[in-house]
Design a protein around this nucleic acid. Structure first.
Lengths: 199, 199
DNA sequence: ATGAAACATGAGCCTTTGCTCGGATTCTGC
DNA sequence: GCAGAATCCGAGCAAAGGCTCATGTTTCAT
């Protein structure tokens, strides 16, 4: 889930302490992000909520953006795993089934905490993505495109982009409207996707 | 398009000057918003680009948010007009035709400048909407819901929300990807909407 | 025990930014 | 012309926030 902290560590007690600090910072940043958007995330606020000093915060992260970037990266990594599983399960399946699996996987990271997921997605739009996160995004897209192409979908790149946009938009809108049940979104999304793909 | 400036004006030469100032400010704000997002919009930057002093700017707008809010209000007002026309044209039409008209109208304000439209929509998410703009939004939603209900769509409120989310998302994604032709989005959107509504 | 390396701390520097205010400038009616 | 109202101007204030650094504390190998 959370990657090794971006600093060299050596032995057990130090590592544990450093790791705890990093996780506390991430957790605090996510919580603030969720409650007040990107604008509300200030380094001082994060440090305070995380229970560490700003000095310590800057020992592990080169700047404010790096904190958010790590949050985004972790989410994307999760998504990639979810979609990898789904793509594997899609092999040899009928396209209707494939659509179901892909969309369910895309919604997966909203399950635990939809508001947090939406907040992180919003942060992603305002951040210059590092190379690693861009690679994750590209791999996620490639995975979806491959499945669509395997089912002879015309212009799979375009379809992947549109479907991803629809998925995020409906999930975010539902969350914003106070809808609790993420699973209730799936059938609606499937109907739209099947219509889009002409299935 | 642009409403009367929020200040009392009296005679012709002054009014013209004041109006010109307001429009210059709006234009400058839109341009900055479009290029760098909400974060890039600073009162000083707007004033400079508009060719007026900050002092003058504050003579017409009570604060930074008011400038953006006016931009949002104008866009919503345009949308309402577009949708009103569309809703009227929907009367007595087959649902497939109604969907086409509604979606085309929703895309209408993207036509002139998609990037600007997307930027203003983004600003809307970060702004506390004034009562007037909220009323506009509510009226727009009510209009779509009425059309859907007239065609016996189940849960028309939910459908309206989902369709609106899909529309914006696909338009924004297309714009972000550098797609130029707004009209190319419409057929894709229609397929998704028909699928969603089970038509 | 001890020196060194790692880690923590928070006062405060510096930049940005929203906004004010006192004074200059332009316009209007007479 | 002229008084006064309307408008414009921009230096600068106050607050917020990103980040540094000098100093203190903990941990580790020896």
């Amino acid at each position: 889930m959370t990657r090794d902290p971006p600093v060299k560590l050596r032995k057990s007690p130090r590592q544990a302490r450093a790791r705890a600090t990093c996780e506390a910072v991430q957790e605090a940043a996510a919580r603030i992000l969720q409650r007040g958007g990107v604008a509300a995330v200030s380094t001082n606020a994060v440090a305070e909520l995380a229970g560490v000093s700003i000095g310590s915060l800057y020992q592990y992260y080169p700047g404010k953006e790096a904190i958010l970037a790590e949050l985004v990266r972790a989410m994307r990594a999760e998504m990639l795993e979810d979609l990898r599983r789904a793509a594997r399960a899609c092999e040899g399946q009928h396209i209707t089934r494939a659509i179901h699996l892909l969309l369910a996987a895309s919604l997966e990271h909203h399950r635990a905490d939809p508001a947090r997921a939406a907040a992180i997605e919003e942060a992603e739009r305002h951040l210059p993505l590092d190379a690693e996160t861009q690679a994750l995004k590209a791999e996620i897209a490639a995975m979806v495109i491959a499945v669509l192409r395997a089912h002879d979908v015309p212009e799979p790149e375009l379809a992947a982009r549109d479907l991803a946009a629809m998925t995020n938009a409906m999930a975010d809108a539902a969350c914003l409207a106070g809808e609790r049940d993420v699973d209730a979104i799936l059938p609606r999304l499937e109907r739209a996707a099947r219509g889009y793909l002409g299935v």
